[in-house]
Simulated assay, not measured.
Amino acid sequence: MPTGVAMRDVRRQLFDAAERVLLSEGPSALTSRAVTDEAGCAKGVLHRHFADCDAFLAELVRDRIARIEGQSDALVAAAGAGDVVDRLTRVLTELFGSVAVAVVGLVVSRDTLRTRLRETTPVGIPVLTEATAVVASYLDAERKAGRLAPEADVGALAPMLVGTAHLLFADRLAAAPGTATVHRAVAGVLSGVLPTPDP
Rank of each mutant, 00 (worst) to 15 (best):
R116W: 08
T196A: 13
H47P: 03
A149L: 11
G70A: 02
P197R: 05
L22V: 02
T121M: 04
A51M: 02
T89S: 09
G26R: 01
D54Y: 09
H49M: 11
G146P: 07
P195N: 05
S109L: 10
A29H: 09
D153Q: 13
A156G: 13
M1K: 15
A51T: 12
D37K: 15
V99F: 00
D63E: 14
H49E: 07
T164M: 15
L60K: 01
L113Y: 12
P159G: 09
D73F: 06
D63Q: 10
E119C: 06
G146F: 09
R184N: 00
G163L: 06
T179W: 07
S72V: 05
R87E: 12
V182R: 00
V10A: 13
G26Y: 08
L14H: 01
R64M: 03
R114A: 15
Q71Y: 06
G163Q: 04
Q13M: 05
A100T: 08
T93C: 06
G40Y: 10
A133S: 13
R147K: 09
A58V: 05
A187H: 11
D16Q: 10
V108M: 09
F15D: 02
E38Y: 10
L92P: 06
P126T: 08
E59R: 15
M160V: 07
L190I: 08
T112Q: 14
T164S: 15
R116F: 10
R67S: 08
L148F: 01
V103G: 01
R147E: 08
D111M: 14
A133V: 15
H47Y: 15
A187D: 08
G70K: 03
A136W: 02
G97L: 12
R114E: 15
V61C: 01
L23R: 15
V35G: 00
G80Q: 09
Q71S: 11
A187G: 13
G105E: 11
V76M: 01
V61A: 02
R48E: 13
L30A: 02
A176E: 13
V186D: 00
R147L: 08
R172D: 03
L88D: 01
S191T: 10
A39K: 07
A58K: 01
L173W: 06
A174H: 05
L194W: 05
E130I: 02
A133H: 14
A55R: 04
A100N: 14
E69Q: 06
M160F: 03
D111I: 10
E25L: 13
V123N: 11
D153S: 08
A18S: 09
A131C: 07
F50Q: 03
V76H: 03
E69H: 00
T129C: 13
T132N: 06
T93K: 06
A78L: 08
H183Y: 04
H47W: 10
T129N: 12
A136Y: 01
L88A: 02
A174Q: 07
G188S: 03
S98H: 02
